[in-house]
Amino acid sequence: MTGAAILRTEGLHKRFGDLHVLRGIDLRVAEGERIAILGSSGSGKSTLLRCLNFMELPSAGRVFFHDRPVGTEETRGGATAVRYRERDLAALRRRVGMVFQSFNLFPHMTALENVMEGPLTVLRRGRGEAAAAARRQLARVGLEDRADEYPARLSGGQQQRVAIARALAMEPEVMLFDEPTSSLDPELVGEVLGVIKALAEEGRTMLLVTHELGFAYHVASRVLFLHEGRILEEGPPERLMKAPREERLRTFLARFSEFSF
């Protein structure tokens, strides 16, 4: 395995009431890795991603950031539980960027203001500095000419590119993409994937939950296949996607090629 581990999980579980979504995930994300997470809906792939930046708190197991465990273990009345302080989680999230399926841009701010918001209020940069940096990020996603538009006046693809710029403006060490193209019209998917591919080519560390198998195949350095809350199979894309060992993965891949032409 190459590079130091930025993120690592040990025996990660997540329950929502009676629903046991993650059932013991051990994952190591090394610097420069581009990990695609595949799986049918309900397999836990989005939940796994959301546990990495604590949008969801793990029910059991630990997450390590640069080999330091996140959260503090506390023993009360014989039982040990991990306590997550909001302050510690905020510090982690500053260094882990996330892009959502539904963009979640701030509708009362222009594209530029959206991208400036993190540096301005979280990193406490000056206005001029934050604006200049935000313009650079918008240029990177090809939207410098839409800087002063409100999100409502942008297409879905443009909104998602602004959302990517907003995450990048924090200069994160890892990017988490949670089905970034799933709510886009098919003809807008390409522009967003293009931006993500460019980031991959810069050597950026990223995890990507996606249904775009072709994209995963060409961009990922490693692919995970999740099934019922466990990593059922993992490996380099050529091996995993061309010669899958698990029957479940074979059926999963077959469903996608059923209507290819």
Partner: peptide
């Protein structure tokens, strides 16, 4: 989603409320 977007940037509860 607005809360999640703010929290993902590392914003505190107070900053999220205010901004």
């Amino acid at each position: 989603g607005q809360w999640e977007a703010g929290r993902a940037l590392g914003m505190t509860y107070g900053a999220l409320m205010r901004r």
